[in-house]
Simulated scan of single mutants.
Amino acid sequence: MDLSLRNANESDMRFLLDLRDKTMKHYLEEAGLPTSNEEYEKRIRFEFDSAQIVEWGRSPIGLFKVTYSHKRNYWYIVQIQIDPEYQGMKIGSWLINSNPAKHLYFCLGIREVSAIDAEQRMDLKPQY
């Protein structure tokens, strides 16, 4: 897979509005929630500073937002949206496995020792 991430910017807004419509309209309509561009843009702008565009080659195919809470000392996945044409290709797994915290932990020698639901217990063995 030729996937990469780059920071989202204002010039991505048209793509992000279209992506939200493709991926969420059906679910929002079923729930009786609004599907206007104004409502889409409100959701897109939530945590926009942490928004990254998922690219296949140089083509945008998705949105990935993840934030870090210093107060709680954890990473939070805010949003993952992948164009339906690319869904089912394990891109979501790639995004989660390449999140900054996990990469840093593994570089430091920390390894997962157990997992319950979405919570992982990790351990660092001292080096002598």
Rank of each mutant, 00 (worst) to 15 (best):
L124G: 00
Q79H: 10
W75I: 09
N99V: 09
E39T: 10
K22I: 01
L28W: 15
V78K: 11
D117Q: 13
E10Q: 13
N73D: 12
R121Y: 12
Q127W: 04
F15M: 04
T67Q: 07
D21K: 13
L5F: 10
A101C: 08
G32H: 10
D21Q: 09
K25T: 15
S36G: 12
R43G: 03
G92M: 05
D2P: 14
N7I: 06
D12V: 11
L19G: 01
L5E: 06
N37R: 12
Q87G: 05
Y74A: 00
K90S: 14
S114T: 14
S4C: 07
M13P: 02
R6C: 06
L104M: 14
D117N: 15
H26R: 13
H26W: 00
I77M: 12
L17V: 15
S59C: 04
E85V: 13
F15D: 02
E30Q: 14
E55C: 14
E10D: 14
I44N: 00
L28R: 15
A118N: 15
E112F: 03
L28T: 02
A8F: 09
K90D: 12
I110C: 05
L3P: 07
S50A: 15
G57A: 02
Q87W: 06
I116Q: 08
D2A: 13
R111F: 03
W94C: 03
G32F: 09
H26G: 03
L19E: 01
N73M: 11
I80T: 12
N37S: 12
M24I: 03
R6Q: 07
L3A: 04
E29G: 01
F48S: 09
K71A: 07
A118E: 11
Q87E: 11
G62V: 08
I116P: 00
L28Y: 15
W75R: 01
P34G: 06
G62Q: 07
M13T: 15
Q127C: 03
Q81E: 06
K25V: 07
V78N: 12
D2T: 09
D117A: 12
Q81I: 03
I96C: 10
